[in-house]
Design a protein around this nucleic acid. Structure first.
Length: 590
DNA sequence: GCCGTTTTCGGCCCGACTGTTTTCAGTCG
């Protein structure tokens, strides 16, 4: 059993234990372990063989044993036992807003409800309101919630959330009594997808801003409205949570609302150890507020430097901050060139000159044009003759456009048998070759891994495009042995792309960090198919920051001369990256 | 179920909102 399945099994145990009203701290232990496992770049099977599971935070002897059982047998006696006692449908009932383990259990025991359909039926027949602790309003809320769980419940891409967030902030700006408004939550942490939008408003009287939120375009329902908190749901299903706060608590509230939850919990624990109490209103010694106006102040009060939001996942950043070793994260302004884009020569929507001029307008000093090779027929991919003609057009254009260097590139397809889609002599003439898999994505693990390794070892391949091929929420990653692939990339000096398309962002944050630890150099490519998509670079930078990357870990932060040297002598250039940075951190944790 | 420079037991983050409850439990973030 692979890591994600183990994580799912541990989460299911937590849910079922909760339904059985087990010790809440035991439930939490399973949830923590599930998260640890999900975030883990290394294979559990390997850790289990080497008896290193107990080195992981939150995993003791018991959970190490259970994880080993899951990895080896694909089953867990405890889970089987729990499943026999508790109907599977109760877990989906718990997904309905307002229904937790207690109420789900109560609905099951007193009305025999074990599925969403039965729940809706019971609500329609007004059988819910008869139960102790439930009433008419709860029944109506359950009915609405059950329907919305079935319809929406999906997360939106960060790029989409950005559109809503910016529109909302503009809309709220003019509200009466408002001093400041910011988006927080996973949006501010720049997660690849956003479940809901958290907004923080500084004001003495929240009436004005809450009224304004109620009038925001697309609001379908006001879910809740209190003295300081308000929740609305848009017609698209996106939920917006607003929190009003006085100015003296701004920093504490921003930190609290930005999360992540595990990061907040660790922060509060550290505050506690120092005899302080941390909440959204500030940092308190007894009843006296000692910090809260700015985030910097809040972090400083517990002995920490300010931590960039992208790092706040409780994946070791707090321990690193304590030791003064936070990475100096990549910035968009560090990027000197875009190394993945298409033109009308294949499936792009804008011409070669338009793409190059748009890249120059963004301040880039070099750009690689990487149209598809012939195997990608649907994109009108190019054979050797057309590609050479395309390259000549680039040379002619270069003579007329100053201030930006055009690298003659190609996105060559890695064929099903591991060969490349263009002859070696053609690839040898390219300035920059990115190799990608587009077909045969469902090959067995060994086969697709070997195929990728072939490309990495190929002397004319500089980078692997969208290395796992996932489409967020739509298509799972190739069944690659990613650890082996990354190790080979480090060994052969092959760049790994962090594709900046909002639906790809591939490698993900965990894989990016694993790559950094292994000494792999990452390249950011917008994979733009139109001039405006060059702007996707921003989302790649966010993801890189979430993976702890610094400018030195990225190929396209180099000057053109440095970049060319990197391509010529990659292994050597790769030595400059800080190897094992986050591994070092783990020792600090222990 | 985990954990320990307050260590092997007794803790485990903290507060807002809702509804039905007459003083608070359940849920959520």
């Amino acid at each position: 059993m692979e890591n994600p399945e183990v994580a799912r099994a541990l989460d299911e145990v937590a849910d079922l234990l909760e339904l059985r009203e087990a010790n809440p701290f035991r439930v939490r232990a399973y949830r923590t372990a599930a998260r640890t496992v999900r975030d883990l770049p290394e294979s559990l099977a390997e850790l289990s063989r080497e008896k290193r599971l107990e080195d992981l935070p939150g995993i003791g002897a018991d959970l190490a044993g259970k994880i080993t059982t899951l990895v080896n047998t694909g089953e867990l006696p405890l889970l089987r036992e729990l499943r026999e006692q508790i109907p599977a449908g109760l877990r989906e009932i718990m997904a309905v807003p307002g229904l937790g383990p207690k109420r789900a259990r109560s609905l099951y025991e007193r009305q025999g409800i074990t599925s969403l359909d039965q729940l809706r039926e019971a609500a329609r027949r007004h059988r819910i309101r008869e139960l102790d602790g439930f009433g008419e309003k709860t029944e109506a809320a359950i009915l609405r919630g059950a329907e919305s769980v079935q319809q929406t419940g999906h997360r939106v891409y960060l790029a989409e959330a950005k559109v809503y967030a910016e529109a909302l902030l503009r809309h709220l700006q003019g509200a009466a009594g408002l001093q400041q408004v910011d988006a927080a939550g996973s949006y501010r942490r720049r997660k690849e997808t956003i479940g809901d939008l958290d907004v923080l408003a500084v004001c003495d009287d929240p009436t004005g801003v809450m009224d304004a939120l109620g009038r925001f375009e697309g609001v379908a329902e006001v879910v809740a409205r209190g003295e300081t908190k308000m929740t609305v749901r848009l017609r698209t299903g996106l939920q917006i949570d607003l929190r009003a706060i006085p100015a003296e608590s701004y920093g504490a509230a921003l930190a609290y609302l930005t999360g992540s939850k595990p990061h907040n919990i660790t922060m509060r624990r550290i505050a506690q150890e120092r005899g302080l109490k941390l909440n959204e209103y500030g940092v308190f010694r007894g009843t006296r507020r000692i910090a809260g106006r700015t985030e910097e102040e809040v972090y400083a009060s517990v002995g920490l430097p300010w931590i960039p939001p992208e790092l706040r996942e409780d994946r070791g950043e707090i321990e690193l901050a304590l030791s003064g070793q936070l990475p100096k994260l990549l910035k968009l302004s560090d990027i000197r060139g875009d190394l993945h884009m298409h033109t009308t020569a294949t499936d792009g929507r804008d011409t070669l000159p338009d793409m190059v001029r748009a890249a120059k307008a963004r301040g880039y000093v070099y750009v690689a044009i990487t149209d598809h090779s012939k195997r990608v027929t649907i994109a009108h991919g190019m054979d050797a003759t057309r590609l050479r003609r395309h390259w000549r057009a680039m040379e002619r254009l270069a003579a007329t456009v100053r201030g930006i260097t055009i690298l003659k590139g190609v996105e060559v397809d890695i064929l099903e048998d591991g060969r490349l889609d263009l002859p070696d002599d053609v690839l040898a003439d390219a300035d920059y070759v990115v190799a990608s898999i587009h077909f045969g994505q469902n090959q067995p693990r060994e086969q697709i891994t070997e195929r990728m390794l072939n490309a990495i070892r190929h002397p004319h391949v500089h980078a692997i495009g969208h290395p796992t091929g996932r489409l967020i929420g739509q298509r799972p990653p190739y069944p690659l042995d990613l650890n082996t692939v990354l190790k080979a990339a480090a060994e052969y000096g092959c760049l790994m792309e962090l594709n900046c398309q909002p639906s790809r962002l591939d490698l993900d944050d965990i894989a990016v960090r694993a790559a950094k630890d292994l000494g792999v150099t990452i390249v950011l490519g917008s994979d733009a198919h139109a001039v405006e998509e060059l702007g996707f670079m921003e989302f790649g930078v966010f993801q890189a920051r979430r993976g702890w990357l610094e400018a030195g870990n990225i190929a396209n932060t180099r000057t053109l001369a440095q970049f060319r040297k990197l391509l010529k002598n990659p292994a050597k250039a790769g030595d400059s990256v800080s190897r094992g940075h986050s591994r070092q951190r783990k020792r600090i944790v222990r």
